[in-house]
Each structure stands twice: as structure tokens, then as C-alpha cells.
Design a protein around this nucleic acid. Sequence first.
DNA 1: CGTTTAATTGAAAGCAGTCAAACTATGTGG
DNA 2: CCACATAGTTTGACTGCTTTCAATTAAACG
Lengths: 243, 243
Amino acid sequence: MSVHPLSMLVRKLEMRSVLSDADRSAILDLPMTKRSMSRSAYMLREGEPPATCSVLIEGYAFRQKLTSDGARQIVSLHLPGDALDLQGLFLDLADHNIQALTQAELAVIPRTAIRELMVKHPAVSVAIHTDITVEASICREWLTNVGRRQAQARLAHLLCEFAVRLDAQGLGTDGSYELPMIQEQIGDALGLTSVHINRTLKAMELGSLICRTGRSITFPNIDALRAVAGFSPLYLHLGVQGT
Amino acid sequence: MSVHPLSMLVRKLEMRSVLSDADRSAILDLPMTKRSMSRSAYMLREGEPPATCSVLIEGYAFRQKLTSDGARQIVSLHLPGDALDLQGLFLDLADHNIQALTQAELAVIPRTAIRELMVKHPAVSVAIHTDITVEASICREWLTNVGRRQAQARLAHLLCEFAVRLDAQGLGTDGSYELPMIQEQIGDALGLTSVHINRTLKAMELGSLICRTGRSITFPNIDALRAVAGFSPLYLHLGVQGT
DNA sequence: CGTTTAATTGAAAGCAGTCAAACTATGTGG
DNA sequence: CCACATAGTTTGACTGCTTTCAATTAAACG
């Protein structure tokens, strides 16, 4: 059964906004070209005008900023079904880089097409703005995570968030998943070094908070993990199901 | 000469979006009630539905999140003319707290009035969404600041940002300003302790990056400060003037 | 297989945190 | 205007989390 490439985006927008049949099909009728990105490939660079807006069909991606002395901070993570850079619709120049985290498949949509869609379908406009706003909320939580939690809690928090978001996109595998990031990237997302990520993972394993086989992680006691993280999913704005 | 309370908001929105005379006066005609907030008073609490949307007329405010073990992270700072919680228009529950940083004057506007305004005036809608998006951009930069810079660069970055934003709102006093935060709040914004803020301020004073008299700060060499911070104002999306 | 990339581990150093005390400013009531 | 209380700043000594540097092992890839 072949699924429409944008159906996951529709699904995601409908988690937080109400769309009519007309809205739905207008989204699915958006003009788009498919594109494959290899691991680490740049989809957008800081300082460039965001020409297009893509939706992740398969694989993972992240946004990233570099400081003047070359350090990297990952500022967001994207799952299949996520729209990359909807915010670029409102800004002339990108303030960050977007990169493929794994080999990825994109649906590339012209900015103008989305703009027109938003004018014709106010509900879609609201849905898109809601999505942008939720992303901002996640960023605030990440800031809190990096600014105010220690390594283990920070890492636990990221793992909890990833689990909830996978579930929300219908990609959940119940108590276990394949983490698409190498330890250096985890560090870049959490404001830590890869070496310390390694040690922290080991410590969490020792504490029976996680089990690892390669890059696949299992959570024997998700409640304990949430407690360590101080995780509360309110900021993901998923409604009651995200509890 | 008495100025309209919302004129600073209009000014701010026009920095990044084009508004017609009709758009401008529609904003100025928004129904509102004035309200005074004393220092530290809460304007919105996490978990609550955001009932209204206020604009800061005078004084300063900040957003803040608390972790489960009581630590606080300040996630944004607001100057006179800033709209507080425009993003609340799209979410059912607040994911953070908003507090007055100093004694402050607000124009409180009903959510519905803004919603109606946005429907009738698409340009205002775009301006508001642009504003929300820029706030998200600032959050990403803060995340990078906290995650990847050391104390002195982190603090220097905050000081640079504050200077540029004051200028942009027409509140600049050229090479010097009164910082509205106590050292503990600076620490909460930067993911550091108040003690360390104190020591870092002292170090920067010794290094002739800043001069202090009470809470007023002067910048004898703003270029050196920017260099220490690795500050680039692109993320504020002010156009060329923010360079 | 050999090569590259990533994970792991150890030892040492450093940045920032903690705790506690002293000092200064600010504000209030008498 | 003083005395006192409170809030905020400053400083010292010590601890500790995280980084750095370097080397080793394991995994992934062509």
C-alpha cells in the first residue's frame, strides 16, 4: 500500500488543529518534488534566503547553529512527518543550518505554494502557525534542559522526548527505539561533549535506566527515567494523549 | 506629549513587516485596559489557559520555566513595546510562566480582539507571525549561548543582545544602559549561578570590557565585547540596521 | 580486509557550583 | 534623620561536574 508522502504531515497538523476535508486535500495537492538527502547533507545554510520548505518523509534531520569558535549546538530534531523550516516562510534569511541526520527523503514544496494555500485555507494557516509555536515551545524546554539540568537528567529528558514524539507520529515501538544520533550529536544537542555522553550513557545503563544494543535503546523503567529527567510532556502540546 | 500606548508595538512590528495606514490604526484601535504590575508579579502561569495578550508599555518582563527540582531558567526577556505571549493565541495551555522583571505597565488586550484583527488585516497577521518567529530565533540563539559558550562569552552575548534590542526599540542610550536584572536573574537566563555571574562581571570589568556603577553598565569597547561574545545580530532579524 | 568512523576508557585539569560569611544598598517605621 | 530589616552584592575556600587530551577498542563501510 503506497501512502501519500504528505499524509504524515496532515496527520501531525491534525493532532493540534482541526482541518476540513477541503483543507486536507489542499495540503495533499501541494506541488512538490521528491528529493533524497544523504547523511549530513545541508538542506539550508545560515545566512541564505530559505527558498523552499520541505517535509521529511523518511529519515531524520536537525537544525544547528555554529558559534564563532566552531562549537556546534543542535537546536532541534525532526522526525518523519515534520515540516522543516515553516518559520522560513516569515524570514528573509535563515538564522541556522538544517542538516540531514540520516539518509532522508524529502518532499520539497515551493514557498509560494504554501503561502497561497495559507491564504485560501485559513484553518491550514492556523495549523501551520500552531506547529511553529509548538516548535518554539520545544526550544524553550531545551533551553531549560541545557541551562538547568545536569548531564544525566539532560540526557534522560532528551530520551523521553524522543519516545513521546515517536509515539505521536505513529512511529512508536513501545519501550524501545533506534536512536538516529551518534554520541557527538547527542552532545551537541545537550551542550555536552561526546565523551561525557558516553560516560553518562554508561552510568544510566548501570542504574538500569536504559539498556543498549548498538544504537538501539530499551527502557526497562520508563517512569524512573521520567523521574530522573523531571520530564513533563506539557510543552509538546499533544493534549491528554501526551501525558 | 502623550503617546498612544500601542505605538511602540506598531513601531516594532513595522521593523520587520509592511503595514498600511489601515493596519496601523486597526492596531491602535484595539480594545485594551491598562494594568500596573509590581516587580515579580506573575502575568501568566504554566498550565493555565492564556486568557489575554498584553503589550509591555513600560518596564521589563521575562518568561521562565521551573524544573521539577526547583531550578529556574529564564527563556526570554521583554522590553517596552514587546507583545507578551502572542504565541498564546495558538495554544490552549501556557508552557511557561511570565513575570514582571521590574514594576511594569501593561496594555491588556482580549485574545478575541487580536484574532479578529488578524482575520480582517492579513498584513497584521503576517507581522504578528513574523514577531513570533523572531522570538523563536532568539530562543535558538539563547540555547546556543547556554549550550556552547563559557560564562564570560555567554554574559557578553546577553549584554550585546540587550544593547541592540534597546536600540531597535528606540530606547538606546549609546554605549551604556541600566540593566534591569539582578545577578541571580542574569544567572537564571544564562544557566549559571548568581555567584558566578558576580565573578564573571568582575572579570569583565578587570578586562575593561565593561564599567559598572550600581546596575548601570557602560561599554568602553563594544567591538571587544562583541568579539568576546562571538556576537552576530543576524538572529534578531532587524535587517541591515542591526549589524 | 583494510580504512575510516564511532565508541570507550583513563588521567589530569579547569570551569562553575556550593556553602558560608561579610559587606552594601535600599527601604521602612519610629 | 536614625535604627533596623531586608534584599542584593561581593568574597573566600572547597568541592565536583564536565572537559580535555590521548590512547584503545569496536563497529561500519567499501
